[in-house]
């Protein structure tokens, strides 16, 4: 066994441990969501009707596609097609930006309706709706931060693939970035129904 395979094995265990900690980090918010939903079912119902289901679905499709792109980037790299791999990483980053742009329009629309934390309109609504929107901003916000971090990480990977410091023989960094990106996708897979669909 050579040193690079050793490092690969270690990195893989490390990144999976990290993914577990991320699941638990979001888990704290899922805990709050479930307890507050339990106590305020009607207000959560009213809150989720306010959200734009079309944009939510669009963003789900975008993120799923980006997950496919990063998987294909690793797949192409493994087959020695570095150029193609770089294109797929670029496509992933493009999807991530697309997601953020949609999110930006969603948030701005809510802000225009006075549905933001501590706003008079939101505070005049039933308390459960305030909690719904508070959690909506916290959870999609934290997820958004992860998307932004993902853009940064994937950009570094793009440069490294192009420069040839990530190679078919030494793909660890790209593989691990891909795992992180899939995690971001999985979290959204749960956020989407919790906020947009369950009414």
């Amino acid at each position: 066994m050579n040193a690079s395979e050793d490092a690969h094995a270690a990195g893989r265990l490390g990144i999976w441990l990290f993914i577990s900690t991320e699941i638990i980090l979001f888990g704290g918010l899922f805990l709050l969501y479930s307890m507050y939903r339990l106590k305020n079912p009607a207000d959560f119902h009213a809150g989720s009707l306010e959200l734009n289901r079309v944009l939510g679905t669009l963003n789900t499709v975008i993120l799923i596609t980006s997950s496919l792109c990063v998987a294909l980037a690793i797949d192409s790299l493994g087959k020695g097609r570095t150029r193609k791999s770089a294109w797929f990483v670029a496509a992933t980053i493009a999807c991530a930006f697309g997601f953020l742009i949609v999110k930006f329009f969603e948030w701005t629309a809510k802000f225009h309706h006075g549905l933001y934390p501590n706003a008079k309109v939101l505070l005049s609504l039933p308390k459960g709706e305030n909690l719904f929107f508070g959690l909506y901003y916290l959870m999609t916000g934290l997820h958004g931060v992860h998307v932004i971090v993902g853009i940064g990480v994937l950009s570094v990977m793009l440069v490294r693939v192009l420069r040839g410091t990530i190679t078919p023989q030494n793909p660890t960094y790209l593989v691990n970035s891909g795992l992180y990106w899939h995690l971001v996708d999985i979290i959204w897979i749960f956020l989407f129904p919790l906020f947009y669909l369950i009414t």
Binding site: T21, I24, G28, N118, N130, L135, L138, L142
Partner: peptide, 23 residues
């Protein structure tokens, strides 16, 4: 397995203080 929970909890207190979210 446990530390991320304090992480998110402390972040929530910061957010509460900065934005008055109300959770």
């Amino acid at each position: 397995l446990a530390t991320p929970i304090i992480g998110i909890t402390m972040l929530l207190v910061v957010m509460e203080r900065l934005f008055g979210i109300g959770v």
